[in-house]
Amino acid sequence: MTPLQTIQQHFEARLIETHDFRGDETVVIAGGLLTEMALFLKKTPELDFNYLMDLTAVDYLFFAGGRIEKRARFEVVYHFFSLKHNHRLRLKVPVEEQNPEIDSLTGLWASANWFEREVWDMFGIRFKGHPDLKRILMYEEFQGHALRKDYPFNKRQPLIGL
């Protein structure tokens, strides 16, 4: 049984959507289910996702020129990997533009710490329960969040003195 089938069997109708485009098994869930899902992924022996390999977000503002409707403006994307079973899973959580906030996974995987800081830095999505949510790649005085689609790529900001 693939990880996707195991999850479908356990969560059934609580999943928003699933697909396996090009063999990448993907599950979309609501933010409220994140902590329960993360625990399930880590603790279930037949899943055993001990790696949070990657965590990022995507801004779907005006996606494909407005031709494709998305559930929410942002999606936080998790890539899990299991060393034991050598399988992967992508988990996506839609996040609304108003009050973008989602649970932190720092308690379960240490790698979530810096990844979540980066998502906060680049997209302005807050992580509830993160021990030290501050910018990581940009400096504290930086205005806005650079990877949002409404942030112009050539925008200049004043230099900051030491």
């Binding site: 990448d24 993907t26 390999m53 990657d54 890539h79 992508r90």
Partner: peptide, 17 residues
């Protein structure tokens, strides 16, 4: 669509999403 493909970089898993 969306894909994630890892390769073995010199320092470890290098993946493009």
């Amino acid at each position: 669509g969306e894909v994630y493909r890892p390769v073995e970089g010199a320092n470890g898993e290098l993946g493009f999403y």
